[in-house]
Structures are given as structure tokens and as C-alpha cells.
């Protein structure tokens, strides 16, 4: 494996542009076309949620919040693919592994914090004590 990789590096060393990523994999930088596609997608995905909120399009706050969050998540993935050039192959898959690990930690931290604190707030509400006799 390692001997094979080093011969690859030696072979590519004759190339006019020394490629710093010659070790094992190529790093995809995208083309003008993929950048423009990513930009167009992110403009659309930004404009729609701003329009939804500024124009008061959806009356139900819960549905509007979920729709806006959905657009945000999709746009984050668009940026990861078209601008950060994330794929399963770059750096032998380790960028993807690090990203997946980070996403897992983020989901645990965010959902855990919100879940715990929401229940804490609910339980601490003065109105929660339905029967004053429970206090004694």
C-alpha cells in the first residue's frame, strides 16, 4: 500500500504543477460550473426563507419554523458539497469521518441541551403546580 503510494507520488512528481495532495488521493477543487451551481442553489435557498418570514407567508409559526430550518439544513449541505468539496474520498475518507463525528456530537449537544432545559423550564413554571395542597 505505502510502497504503491510512493511510486504514485514519484510518478506525479514529473508533472508541471507539483500537487501537494499527491499523497494517496486527489483533492477536488471543483470547476467554475460547480461553483456557479452551488451559488445559484444557495441564493435560492436563502431567498425563500427570507421571503417566507418578511412576507408573513405561512400563518402557522410552528410550520414556518420547521420549513425555515429545513431550508437551512439543505443549504448547509449544499455549501459542504459545492464550496467545501466534501466527499467520501478526500484525504482517504478522514475528512468525512471527522465531519460525521462532529455532526453526532453537535446533535447530542444541541438536542440534549434543548430537551433538558425545556423540561426544566416546564417543571419550574409557577403555573405547573395545579393543586396548592401539593405544596404542603
Amino acid at each position: 500500500m505505502s510502497a504503491h503510494t510512493s511510486t504514485d507520488t514519484l510518478a506525479s512528481g514529473t508533472h508541471a504543477h507539483p500537487n501537494p495532495d499527491a499523497h494517496g488521493d486527489g483533492h477536488d477543487h471543483g470547476t467554475r460550473r460547480t461553483y456557479l451551481i452551488g451559488f445559484a442553489l444557495s441564493v435560492i435557498l436563502t431567498a425563500i426563507p427570507f421571503w417566507l418570514v418578511m412576507g408573513d407567508v405561512i400563518a402557522d409559526t410552528t410550520i414556518a419554523t420547521l420549513v425555515i430550518m429545513g431550508f437551512g439544513v439543505v443549504q448547509i449541505f449544499v455549501h459542504m458539497v459545492y464550496f467545501l468539496h466534501m466527499n467520501t474520498k478526500s484525504e482517504g475518507g478522514w475528512t468525512m469521518m471527522a465531519a460525521i463525528f462532529t455532526i453526532i456530537i453537535i446533535v447530542i449537544a444541541l438536542s440534549g441541551s434543548l430537551w433538558v432545559m425545556f423540561h426544566l423550564n416546564t417543571n419550574m413554571m409557577p403555573g405547573h403546580i395545579m393543586n396548592p395542597a401539593d405544596l404542603i
Binding site: S6, T9, L10, P20, D21, H23, H27, F101, T102
Partner: peptide
């Protein structure tokens, strides 16, 4: 047996990615 050459700055990008994470 074959000397294993890392390209200069070969690990910079993955290191920077870990920082970003």
C-alpha cells in the same frame, strides 16, 4: 524498503479540517 515521501504540507489540509471541526 522504498523511502516513503510525504508531499510537503501533505497533512496540512486534514489538520486544518480537524481544527474547523
Amino acid at each position: 524498503l522504498v523511502p516513503h515521501h510525504h508531499a510537503p504540507h501533505g497533512s496540512t489540509q486534514i489538520g486544518f479540517w480537524i481544527y474547523l471541526m
